[in-house]
Computed example of a mutant assay.
Amino acid sequence: MNVSPAMATPSLLEIALFYAEAGVDEVIGEVPVDRTVAPPPRSPAATEAVAAGAGRPAAGATPARGAVPPMAMPPAAPAAQQALLSVQAVESAASEAARACRTVPELEAAIRAFEGCALRATATNTVIARGNPQAPLMIIGEAPGRDEDAQGLPFVGESGQLLDRMLKAIGRDESNVYISNILFWRPPGNRDPSAEEIVACRPFIERLIELVQPKVIACAGKHSAATLLGATGITRIRGRWHEYRRGDLVIPAMPLLHPAYLLRQPGVKREAWRDMLSLAEKLEELK
């Protein structure tokens, strides 16, 4: 029996990230406590023990019924909380490393040295960017594929070749475009990026945008648009102008259908061409 993605059970990390975004920052126990109900009365023996500051019972002594151990150890943190703490530590380390970089070469070196993303262990190469970092247009995809992992450059496989042809049609090439991804290592089997992998890489791609400061950003694919723009539903939002905002930095940004999607669904190339024309018009306006 096939299970649709909508019915798949979320991972502990996805649950923890949802809790964090919802403002849940403390986990007390697995059973909810109704604090509107008065607690049961203490037994006389327990009351006397607490009032007297009793410590541990003497060896061989029998504790009074209802007595509460004065130094009971708290329960172990649930797995979801532990996963959340781990993700937060990785994000903090990535953010600190990214902030310390003042140039694109420094940032590239920091990305290559970063060990907080598990994908690094299975990837052949670290894939960061290609093109001109001084270009007015920055295209940000999702993750390296097989060819990108082999060559160490983004968008060099079949979908990358299609992207190059699309850019050429509006007068763009590596001299006036800068191309990267939200992930710098290939997910095994070209699967979708996981939440923890995006968290580990996001501070670096955000710092790369800050250093390059393009005039226009194109987010190729649903994961890129969701990560950088907070926009979901790529077939609905594609071709619509958004704003990438981080601090004082505000950049016009457009979600695009990923070239790999166009290879699978050639019937939507008409819409993709209209989006490319819109990009060209915006770049002309901002000259």
Results as ranks from 00 to 15, higher is better:
96 E>L: 13
111 I>Q: 05
115 E>C: 15
84 L>S: 06
275 D>S: 05
25 D>A: 15
182 I>H: 07
43 S>A: 11
93 A>N: 04
263 L>M: 12
121 A>V: 07
186 R>G: 08
168 K>N: 11
19 Y>C: 15
107 L>H: 06
285 E>S: 13
263 L>F: 09
271 E>P: 02
79 A>G: 12
241 W>S: 02
11 S>F: 00
89 A>N: 12
10 P>T: 03
135 A>Q: 03
195 A>Y: 06
143 A>V: 00
161 Q>M: 05
17 L>V: 11
277 L>R: 13
50 V>P: 01
210 E>S: 13
95 S>K: 09
244 Y>L: 00
33 V>P: 01
94 A>T: 10
272 A>S: 15
108 E>L: 08
166 M>P: 00
19 Y>E: 15
15 I>R: 09
27 V>R: 06
56 R>M: 09
36 T>E: 09
236 R>V: 03
48 E>K: 11
169 A>L: 10
56 R>A: 10
54 A>N: 08
118 A>I: 05
102 R>K: 14
175 S>C: 04
137 L>T: 01
181 N>H: 07
113 A>H: 06
220 A>L: 05
221 G>L: 06
72 A>Q: 14
119 L>T: 03
174 E>W: 08
88 Q>A: 11
109 A>I: 03
105 P>T: 07
98 A>H: 00
80 A>P: 08
7 M>I: 07
136 P>W: 01
255 P>T: 02
225 A>V: 06
167 L>N: 05
203 P>C: 07
142 E>G: 02
108 E>G: 12
176 N>P: 11
101 C>S: 14
13 L>V: 14
78 P>K: 06
97 A>Q: 02
211 L>W: 14
151 Q>A: 10
164 D>S: 06
280 A>T: 02
71 M>G: 10
222 K>L: 02
105 P>E: 04
148 E>C: 07
250 V>A: 14
133 P>Y: 14
156 V>Q: 04
226 A>I: 00
130 R>I: 09
138 M>I: 11
259 P>M: 04
47 T>I: 07
30 E>Q: 12
